[in-house]
Amino acid sequence: MNEMDITHPPSAEQFHRTVYAIWDFQQALSALIFLLEECDLSSKYTKAQIRRFKCYESQAIISFCRPFAQSKNGSQLSLKRIQVTLGADESRLKKDVLHLRNKIIAHSDSEEMHYKGVLIGIEDPLELKAPLLIFDEGLHLSLNQIQNLELLLRKLISAITEYTFILCKSYPELFETYKIPASRSN
């Protein structure tokens, strides 16, 4: 990244969103690292183990997407502000991960639901049937996507960190703050 000239400070909301993006991306990166450390995608696992891996994957997806989602006040992370340009593959990955978050992970949109239902006959005089529902228990991201997302997260964390150091030189007063949630300020 070239030395930035920050002639105008970001708004308070832009500043908070940029700072918090560091934490969001660190959370996503940690979840991916835990997933890669514990899961060999070529191995077979129990349903409980797979669900633990899905928890890591879901946390990575949600945390990665949080800075790009528009908040109530309209603030979201600006890649232009932190001077990051995504390549075509990175843009596609970001789009795919945002789709997973918006349609599958954070919401259960019916067009993305994946399950199978079958009826099992119960041997009794009443000829009762019981439903058996089978859900997709696999991960949503491939190993290649996970590895590329890890690289993208490292790139974004580095860019935001550099941006905040440069911002601190021109506007140190922005960093002398203690931001607490509105729900705790009463």
Rank of each mutant, 00 (worst) to 15 (best):
E111P: 00
H114G: 08
Q147T: 13
A130D: 13
L126C: 15
F175V: 01
D136G: 04
L143M: 10
E162S: 09
P172F: 05
Q147G: 09
F135P: 01
H114V: 10
Y163M: 02
I180C: 04
L139M: 03
E173W: 04
Y115V: 07
L149C: 04
E162I: 12
G117D: 14
D136I: 06
L126D: 15
L149N: 05
E127F: 08
Q147W: 05
G117H: 14
L139C: 10
Y178T: 14
D124M: 03
Y115H: 04
L167C: 13
M113S: 07
K179Q: 12
E137F: 05
T177F: 03
L152V: 02
L126A: 12
I120A: 03
N148E: 08
F165E: 11
P125W: 11
N148L: 03
Y163K: 00
L141V: 01
E162N: 12
L151F: 10
E111S: 15
L153R: 02
I180S: 09
L152E: 02
E176R: 09
L139S: 09
A159N: 04
L132S: 15
L141M: 06
K155W: 02
Y115E: 06
E123C: 03
T177M: 12
E137P: 06
P131W: 03
L141K: 01
G138I: 03
E162K: 08
A159H: 01
T161Y: 15
F175N: 08
L151P: 03
I180F: 13
I122F: 06
G117V: 15
L149F: 08
Y178L: 12
L153W: 00
Q145W: 01
Y163R: 02
L174W: 08
E176T: 11
D124C: 07
E123A: 14
E176K: 13
P172Y: 10
F165G: 11
P172G: 01
V118N: 12
L149H: 01
I166Y: 04
A159Q: 07
S158Q: 10
L139G: 05
R154K: 12
T161S: 09
F175G: 01
A159P: 02
S170K: 15
K155T: 02
R154G: 07
P131V: 08
C168K: 15
D124G: 11
F175K: 07
L132K: 15
Q145T: 01
E173N: 12
E150F: 10
S142I: 03
L143I: 15
I160H: 00
P131G: 00
L133P: 02
E127W: 04
E173A: 14
P131K: 03
I180R: 13
P172I: 03
I180M: 15
V118P: 01
N148M: 06
I180Q: 10
K169Q: 05
Q145R: 00
E127D: 11
Y115D: 11
E112C: 09
K129N: 14
G117W: 11
F135V: 02
L143S: 13
A159V: 01
D124E: 15
L119A: 06
L151K: 15
E111Y: 00
S170Y: 10
L153G: 01
A159K: 09
L152I: 11
K129M: 15
L153V: 07
C168W: 06
Y171W: 08
N144F: 05
L141I: 06
I120D: 07
F175S: 06
F135H: 06
D136M: 03
E162M: 05
